[in-house]
Design a protein around this nucleic acid. Structure first.
Length: 126
DNA sequence: GGGCTGACCTACT
DNA sequence: CAGTAGGCCAGCC
């Protein structure tokens, strides 16, 4: 092991814990809902950036079956190149969960967390 | 040490 | 709505 990993054995609890927090947040996303990278980064805690969320999702093992497809960018669009494997899979999985795509775009106001709350208050008419 | 890249974000033009 | 600019953090050369 390197000296840097022991420099402060009990000072900073933030090693990869932030990445783990990201996984937890993503795992807690209800079915049929989506979350943006920025929101995930915020829910995971400070010290993280949306950019790290993407890397965390990429490094996440498949054993945990992380619902990475419920994470999209702030534009409500899939962050994969259109037509790519990831794009198709994410779109298919989301549609399977009830998320509707309009012109390759989702309604964050509806499928986001706040949107979910609105759904509980207003029903499907929104 | 510097420089570039990446499943990004916000704000402004 | 599209394009640009600045910021963000980790990994690789």
């Amino acid at each position: 092991m390197t000296a840097s990993s022991v420099t402060s054995s009990e000072e900073k609890p933030e090693f990869d814990s932030w990445v783990v927090a990201v996984w937890h947040v993503v795992q807690d996303i209800p079915r049929g809902c989506v979350l943006t990278y920025g929101e995930v980064a915020r829910l995971a805690g400070s010290g993280g950036s949306p950019r790290r969320v993407s890397q965390a999702l990429r490094q996440a093992p498949r054993d945990m079956k992380l619902p990475w497809h419920r994470v999209i960018n702030s534009q409500g669009r899939i962050s994969f190149p259109v037509g790519s494997q990831g794009y198709r899979q994410q779109k298919t999985r989301l549609e399977k969960e009830g998320v509707v795509f309009l012109n390759g775009r989702t309604n964050l106001q509806r499928y986001g967390y706040s949107g979910a709350l609105d759904k509980l208050f207003w029903g499907d008419s929104v």
